[in-house]
Amino acid sequence: MSETAHSAGTGGDTSRRDMLLYASVALGTVGTALAVWPFLDSMNPAKDVLALASIEVDLSPIQEGQAITAVWRGKPVFIRHRTPADIEQSRAVEVSSLRDPQADEDRVIKDQWLVMIGICTHLGCVPKGQKPGDPKGDYNGWFCVCHGSHYDTAGRIRKGPAPLNLPVPPYDFLDETSIRIG
């Protein structure tokens, strides 16, 4: 080694040296970047948290006209078994007249089952209207007592400060009477 070192002298084989320098820097940079990933990813939801990211809900005990509140990803999910009157009332509305225009059909998979996230789109309160004695607002749906937003029987905003309808979470029917949310 030392013999070549002496004969080569300064600037002897600069192209080889440069190539090795670039390779070292490139590999080092790539390696460091890849090593960062496990640390960042560890802060993403863990497997046990992800396992709870979708829940199954059995709808069979919910009588017509009743509602239940399920918890999904830490948020209340309103599930109402709507009566034919509820559905009719919702569909009688002219869609284009709504603040957040959306047809009733676009908010449900099965007409009688309304599933949505029960968080007022105004400032995040949980609206009333799930329990039999609750105020249901002017449109027989839900009423947010914080700032007076009224939602109809399809969960659409009709009156008050909230800008949007109550959002519908992703869900599908596993069979006639059970759904998976998320």
Binding site: P38, F39, D41, S42, N44, A46, K47, D48, V49
Partner: peptide, 26 residues
């Protein structure tokens, strides 16, 4: 992820090993 509690410390490390992304590696 670690929980310093006599009833939970051991289990919290098992959770790091099993549930946390790359927890075993860290």
């Amino acid at each position: 992820f670690y929980t310093p509690h006599e009833d939970m410390a051991f289990a919290s490390i098992e959770r790091i090993m099993r549930e946390v992304n790359y927890g075993w590696l860290i």
